[in-house]
Every structure is written in C-alpha cells, then in structure tokens.
C-alpha cells in the first residue's frame, strides 16, 4: 500500500469536494483496503463516507430509499426489505460473511471489483483491466469463474456482487452526486460491459459519488421472489452462478417475470429476453427452460466454464418453478 492520508467526511458536501479533488471513497473497506494492500489500486487520499447518513426510508409513494452508507447487514435485517423484497435480503445474506456484511456498505458493494485471480496478481499476471493493453491471462487460464455473456477479447471477468443481482432484478435506481449536480441511473445501466475498455466498469464520472439506492414500490414479482446462489462451498464463497427470480401470476399465467443472473458477466445480468418470453405463459419447467435458453443464446463459454450454461438453465427453472408453486 502506498502512503496515503485518511479523512472522515463531515458531510456529503465535504465528501464530494474531496472526491472531486481525487480522493477515493472508503465505505466498509472490505474490498478497497484489500485492493490497496495488494497494490491493485493506489490512492493518495481516502475519504471515509461510512459514517454519513445510513437510513432506510419509505416514501409516500411506496418507494424505498436506501442511503449508500447503510451496511449490508442492516439492509438484510430491515423488516421492509425482508417482507417486500425477499430476493434482496436473501442476496445480501448469501454474500460474504456476517463480519463482512457488518462492514460493507451498499455503495461499496455496488462498486466492488472483480475477483479474477489474474486481476489480483499484480506482479505475475497480465490484466487489461489493471493495465490497459497489457493482455489478459485469464483467457486460456483459470476461467471457471468467468463470464459467458457480454465478455470481450479484452476481458472476461465477472462482477462478484450478490446484492447487485437482486437490485438489477428489482429495477433499482442508483442516485449519484457529482460536480455537475445530482442524477440517477438504473442499476442495470450503471455497470458497463468491458468492450475495448475493461478498466471502465461503471458510468460514474470522475468526482461522482453514490449517495443511495431507490427501490420501486413492490410489485407481485418482487414480493414473490428469491435468490439462489450456487457456489463451490456451502457458504462464504463467491458465486459460480446465481439467480434472482420473481414471478407475478394471474390465473396460472405469468403476468410479470423478473430474472437476473450473477456470475455470468461483468455486470449483474438482467435476463429481459427470458422475462419477455414468459409473459402470458403457464410457468411450466418446459416454458421456463425455453425462455432462459433464449436469454443464453448469445452465451460464449470459455475453455473452463461451459458448464455454466446448463447450470444457469437448471437453476433458473428450479427457482421459478418453486416460486410458481409458492403461495403468493
């Protein structure tokens, strides 16, 4: 870790001013401190935003506003989240460990970086994300955890967040503040695919700060929702793949379908094609399988992760079949 200075933001304006001047935002530190220590990232100044407002508020219209500094643990335990957005509570609880969830903030979780081993090996591996143009050693290397959708020649890394998969499914909107004022971006548009610039991971502009996340009023498919994480050990492991699913049914037919996938791309993957294909159908395993296959038609497996296609198919079918059978 290079020498750096640490300041605690007095308020949001203070944080913004420092970020504009090049400081890095520090939330819980569960990813950034590690990246700094491994010399994957450098910073000369850290501005600690973890003690800014950390509330969860319901609006009159039924939206839920979540401040960026809310911890993953607090959000998962929040009664409204558990009742109205169980997929989000489950995704949060599937992530990391209790200790890390107590530290990690919502803002930091969104901005966490890939766990690709070649990205982390500063001394010994080439990585276009770390060093644009250097090359990618993950290709033809250990690419079991890597992307099957939306990857490029430059980068095949996946986004590791569980929470973001649920947020993508829920049509969450991310609130940003920056030198040019405030704006909001749907979470599904916040992360970008690698293309020729894998070092660019989000649409955040220099000097911009995540201030919070907004969830729309709960729909049927948000309430009747679940998150299933498939991993190499039963807990405390990153997803091999994960599925956030929700169903709204009317007279036995799908009125609303929500599906998002984790562990398959550089961003949480909202499966809109599959969702559209299901509308109006009875949620039979056959219909579900056909729909997710449509989504995965563009999948491009790497040397060691072709199994993810079948795994995603079976997991999506299982999650939605269970939801279809569950009482609303």
């Amino acid at each position: 870790m290079t020498p750096l200075c640490y300041v605690r933001a007095g308020d949001r304006a203070d944080a913004l001013a420092r970020v504009v001047n090049g400081a890095r935002c520090l939330g819980g530190g569960t990813n950034l401190v590690d990246l700094l220590r491994q010399n994957v990232e450098q910073a000369s100044e850290l501005v600690d935003v973890s003690r800014l407002d950390g509330d969860v508020r319901e609006s009159d219209g039924g939206e839920l506003f979540i401040d960026a500094a809310v911890t993953n643990a607090a959000l998962a335990a929040h009664p409204l989240v558990r009742r109205r957005y169980p997929v989000l509570a489950r995704a949060l609880l599937a992530g990391a460990s209790a200790q890390i969830r107590n530290m990690a903030t919502v803002g930091g979780n969104i901005l966490q970086r890939t766990r690709c081993m070649y990205f982390y090996d500063v001394d010994g591996a080439r990585c276009n994300k770390r060093q644009p143009g250097a090359g990618c050693d993950a290709r033809e290397g250990f690419d079991r955890y890597h992307a099957i959708l939306g990857a490029s020649d430059q980068c095949v890394a996946t986004h590791p967040s569980d929470m973001c998969v649920a947020l993508a499914m829920l049509d969450a909107v991310v609130h940003l503040s920056g030198p040019g004022g405030d704006r909001s971006v749907p979470l599904t548009d916040l992360h970008v695919l690698p293309g020729a610039t894998p070092q660019v991971e989000t649409v955040l502009q220099p000097g911009e700060l995540i201030t919070g996340v907004e969830l729309p009023p709960p729909s049927d498919a948000m309430v009747r929702s679940d998150y299933r994480k498939v991993r190499d050990r039963s807990s405390y492991a990153f997803a091999v793949v994960s599925v956030a699913g929700g169903l709204g049914l009317a007279e036995g037919r799908v009125r609303e379908a929500r599906i998002a996938l984790g562990g398959v791309a550089a961003k949480p993957w909202r499966a809109r094609r599959a969702e559209a294909a299901l509308i109006g159908l009875a949620p039979t395993p056959e219909a579900l399988l056909a729909a997710i296959r449509e989504e995965l038609a563009d999948a491009r497996p790497l040397s060691g992760n072709g199994f993810k296609i079948g795994l995603v198919e079976r997991t999506v079918v299982a999650v939605l079949t269970t939801l279809a059978g569950a009482r609303a």
Partner: peptide, 15 residues
Amino acid sequence: LDGNRVLSCLTLAAQ
C-alpha cells in the same frame, strides 16, 4: 466494534 463483529484486518485503525 460497537458490539458488532467485524474483521479488524480490513478495518483501518483510523476507521
């Protein structure tokens, strides 16, 4: 930390 379990390795002392 204030009664909550956290990882001290990823917590900067200043935090």
